[in-house]
């Protein structure tokens, strides 16, 4: 059978090599035992299951892999990597694929997850510590999804679990500087 050629990848091997370089994992070791998929808590909701994802990377199907919801539904619980008989750390692989998707400008199928990550990091950048009220407002503005979880949010607020004002930690200026230096270096 001819290797599958993907419109945005040159050859199947170049994608496999790139993924292996970014993740540091040897994906040729996978013999499809399915332990990763069976133990994965979010696999039932993924469009491509973790074991299939590895096979597709081997076949060079870059576009389908980087556009999948699977890479964004992974929560890095590391059950897969713990159980893999060939010591492939699929959590690491997923993180590398997410980075590659972001670098390629591919919009996440699970776009809210990506937006949540961004709102979270901005919150630390602003205040040094996460302030949930402003972080969640930021997330809601980004996702334009204003009503999901509104009620639980109000309940948490009523129980005094979401303080109105952020705590002003002295280290926040230092954190901001560190972030800036690292962004520049990138």
């Amino acid at each position: 059978m001819l290797p599958h050629r993907d419109p945005i990848g040159q050859s199947p091997h170049s994608f496999l090599r790139e993924v292996e370089k970014r993740s540091g994992e040897n994906l040729n070791l996978c013999y499809q035992c399915l332990k990763c998929t069976v133990g994965c808590p979010t696999a039932p909701y993924m469009d491509i299951r973790p074991n299939s994802l590895i096979r597709m990377i081997q076949m060079g199907r870059k576009k389908e892999v980087l556009e999948s919801s699977a890479i964004w539904l992974c929560v890095s619980c590391e059950t897969c990597g713990t159980r893999c008989p060939n010591q492939i750390d699929i959590g690491v692989l997923m993180d590398a694929l997410r980075e590659m998707a972001v670098d390629e400008g591919i919009h996440a199928k699970e776009k809210n997850i990506h937006l949540l990550h961004e709102a979270f990091i901005q919150s630390i950048r602003r205040g040094g510590r996460v302030h949930e009220a402003t972080m969640l407002i930021d997330y809601k503005l980004r996702s334009k999804d204003f009503f999901t979880d509104l009620l639980p949010g109000i309940k948490l607020f009523m129980k005094g679990k979401i303080p109105l004002l952020p705590s002003l930690v002295k280290g926040r200026g230092e954190m901001k500087r560190i972030f800036e230096r690292c962004t520049k270096a990138k």
Partner: peptide
């Protein structure tokens, strides 16, 4: 004293240094 957020996820991709900075600063302090 003066602790800041740990970043809440350990970065797994090999080239992600930024996410390692908040926890490293905590350890150093």
């Amino acid at each position: 004293p003066e602790w800041t957020c740990c970043g809440a996820t350990f970065p797994l991709a090999t080239d992600n240094l930024m996410a390692l900075l908040p926890p490293s600063r905590i350890l150093a302090k």
